[in-house]
Amino acid sequence: MSEPAISLTNLGYFYRPNQWVLRHCDTRVARGSVFALLGPNGRGKTTLLHLLIGALKPCEGGLSVNGRIAFVPQLFEVTFDYTALDMALMGRARKIGLFSQPSRDDEEAALAALDRFGMADYAQRPFGELSGGQRQLIIFARVLVAEADILVLDEPTSALDLENQSLVLERISSLARNDRLTIVMTTHHPHHALAVADDALLMRGQGDYLFGRAREILTEDNLCSLYRAPLKRIAFEHEGREIETIAPILTPTQMARHHSQETIGAE
């Protein structure tokens, strides 16, 4: 096996002394793979991402990152409404000299990247006017422009509608398969992880991490105890393909109670 893109050894971090958010975390992320981080809120998913991109420094242990990292935050908001092309162009920051401006070549590289994601027609549209999914695609294009090797995504599907969710997941998969990018993503949707991730890390608590092949560790038992909510892993055939997904179980009693509360609230 070749050198991993990312390896964590006994990694630990706290914001206040001795209140560990993350501890004894060991993981290896293989080059060109999709790696998903799962766990309830407050278990250190975002902290781990910030450690990976270098925004935080480890308090304990170490991590090594082999390659250039690009980060895609959860919801990309901009103060100034640059065009999609201007946004993609910013990926060239390392190539453009301190006192230089982007050249025609830079602009064409950015346009080509937008084209890869079917966004060339939106090049002159203000970024802020695009939908959440379109913004993600623009940022993906920027990642290609930056020629990054590792893409770190913070809940890439959380703010998106169903159509854009599947679009973004498909692109993530394609970036790993076709462009050999290593992808690290957090998600609150275990079925998204099952659909695209090769490996996964279940963050169950401080020092309690389960790492393994996504298909092997995203089991009903593991997920139920992770989220403390009933889930079902389902396999079925769709258009000749074997599909596996995970669905939460909403029991009729829960739904009935929810419904009656609504009725009471209305009166």
Partner: peptide, 25 residues
């Protein structure tokens, strides 16, 4: 002159610290 020469970099800074750093600024 220096400000005008650096003007494209202001775009990068305006993205915010985390993002600008990740882009190599």
């Amino acid at each position: 002159t220096a400000l005008v020469a650096l003007r494209w970099r202001i775009n990068l800074l305006s993205l915010g610290q985390t993002d600008a750093k990740a882009l190599g600024v």
